[in-house]
Amino acid sequence: MSEAITKTGGLRVTGRSRGSRQVNTLPLLLPAVALLLLWSVLPLLRTLFYSFEHYNLMSPPAVLNGGLNYRYLFTDVSTWVAIENSVILVVGVLFASIVFGTLIALLLNNDFPGRNVARLMAIAPFFVMSPVAALIWKNLLLDPVSGLFGWLMMLVGLRPIAWFSTDPMTAVIIIYSWRWIPFATLILLTALQSLDTDQLEAARMDGAHGFARLRYIVLPHLGRPIAIVIMLESIFLLSAFAVIYTTTNGGPGDATTTLTYLIFIKALNDFSIGSASAAGVFAIVLANILAFFLIRAVSKNLQR
């Protein structure tokens, strides 16, 4: 389509159109490009610069200290604990999102009474802001004394679990999963709706059973969207912040301190800008490795 434009345009006003095109698009693109450059490159350079400084807001001035921040970062046990916590959180939520997201999307893709309402209900948690999601679960559902789940456990003769002191990471994973399963459901449901129904019909005529149709037609069709969900959710979850801030503050101890949360503590609790920035650079490198794969997937789509 775009080629058609340039071709017909070229026929009518050859030469001039080419020139004017180049002159014209720059001012259109400039505001967006300039602002995004400012937003992405400048702070990045400053973070990189700070990361080589000993700089604490409480005890200025800043002095260059070579790679000392990085050496402390990688020899500090809490860094590795934080990385482990990040990995557990990301993997846990991803596992739940893919398994339950796919199952729910497949169920909701069937024809049944009230399907549209059921879809809205299943996807609704994605639109609930993280602090609210965190507090619904922390207070109303998981609280060992007055929470609904504690009461349900007592009903069946079990002792209520004080989630946020005995198993805080599981609680955090549950809350994030509740928000991100619907995201997977939404993406996969949309992908399912673009599945060619003729193909399914043909397979049905040829006698392929429900399971065979699912295994050989539906699931392969979901491969790419699932990969996209995995990448988008990993990038988001590596930066997960608000639920931890609202429920556990990274604790007890460092039980729920992820890499993101560790950087936040270093930066705005300890005001040690140098070491926060070194950890920030490390987080950026990690995110970029993930982003590389996502961008490759999206770019393939652009070329189609």
């Binding site: 995004l36 937003w39 990045l44 973070t47 950087i263 920030g280 961008i295």
Partner: peptide, 15 residues
């Protein structure tokens, strides 16, 4: 433009 979305916010919190 897409890649600028990948930048973890916490990495540029300080600046």
């Amino acid at each position: 433009m897409l890649s600028t979305k990948m930048l973890p916010a916490v990495g540029v919190l300080m600046p």
